[in-house]
Write a protein that binds this DNA or RNA. Structure first.
Lengths: 197, 197
DNA sequence: CCCTTCTTGAACCGATGGTTCCAAGATATC
DNA sequence: GATATCTTGGAACCATCGGTTCAAGAAGGG
């Protein structure tokens, strides 16, 4: 009865995501998206509605794919302190090397870029930050139950501190901060807020 | 012989600074600057050259005025641990209340906004981060000499951790993070990385 | 009052912003 | 193969972008 899409919307969304991630909303023109995705303006608007809706879609794709990739292991049962250390190792690795080096985190970038002027975007940012805190809390809680933490350590406030620290890593990585330096700092931080037993 | 400027360049620079600080470079048009400063395009270009040069000028004004306001007390001799606590108190106060609430830090914003594509801007960002680390190191060093720190505390790595944490505070404040929550988290962090004697 | 120097407002430039529209092309059902 | 329905390509839309230019006006020194 009808025609079907001649392109892969998921691939297009991914290409657009990378654009917004790297350069932000304001610095990315619709023409840039057209060029990067290869599809036409009409198809783009027919599929995603508007630039703002497209941005929201890419942001949600980011938190569901890229963020999940990092947070997933953290939320698994019984990860404990090693899971926390591995989370930051992988975070710094991702932020400083490979194809995403110097791109930072799309969520942190959205924070600073003021994209939260859009209430829907703001809600995503808050939710994502709470999820990061919760994931760290889960891992630190399991660390405590496994007796990995020194007595008197509070997993909740430690998780909040490390979550803020993660934002700091994301920000500094955009300026090309040295991975070794970041790793050393983060290691010191973990050792201080979540000291081993 | 000639005519003299009919406006105050410093006031104009300050108005432009607020614009770039709040909304970023890409989202701020020259017309916005014209409207905010009250002076016209010609005077603006005659005085500052280009939009990019104007941005650089406002960024430097920011680090020389606003940042200095926060970092100054930290660098003074003998501030010790109380100076560190006061720095974060004032940071959070500035970021969450008053006319600059939800504006974040212009330097952190520039990081995430990718403004460091301009090498001169990137240099300012790196310099400013190093200065923040150095200021914290100074205060923590004096704390150690005054016997305020527990044995085994390393002022240098503690300073690096707190500097990253400051970026985190700046970022989260843009999303309207609760000041009390931030204060509690920061207090926990200071207590962990720079425990009192 | 003249003349020089600066400021000012407005118009102008090409490029680009996001968005819409319509004819042409493609496809699955009948 | 005809037809209905969707996608596609491309152009056009109108506003604004950053940046430049120019003529008129204002202000000081002679």
């Amino acid at each position: 009865m009808a025609d079907v899409k001649h392109f892969d919307p998921d691939a297009a969304l991914d290409a657009a995501m990378r654009l917004f991630w790297q350069r932000g909303t304001a610095s990315t023109g619709v023409q840039d998206v057209v060029d990067a995705t290869g599809l036409n303006r009409s198809s783009l608007y027919a599929t995603f509605g508007s630039k703002q809706e497209l941005y929201r879609a890419t942001l949600e794709r980011y938190v569901r794919s890229r963020s999940r990739l990092l947070l997933g292991p953290l939320e698994e049962d019984g990860g404990g302190l090693p899971a926390v250390r591995e989370f930051f190792d992988r975070l710094i690795e991702t932020r400083c090397t490979g194809e995403f080096a110097r791109w930072g985190c799309m969520v942190s970038n959205a924070h600073a870029g003021g994209e939260n002027g859009d209430p829907e975007v703001g809600a995503v940012l808050d939710r994502q930050h709470r999820q990061l805190c919760a994931a760290l809390r889960t891992a630190l809680g399991s660390a405590q139950r496994q007796g990995q933490l020194a007595a008197g350590t509070d997993p909740e406030s430690a998780a909040d501190v490390l979550a803020l620290l993660a934002h700091g890593v994301n920000i500094r990585s955009r300026a090309g901060a040295d991975a070794r330096q970041l790793r050393a700092t983060v290691t010191a931080a973990i050792g201080a807020v979540a000291p081993g037993a």
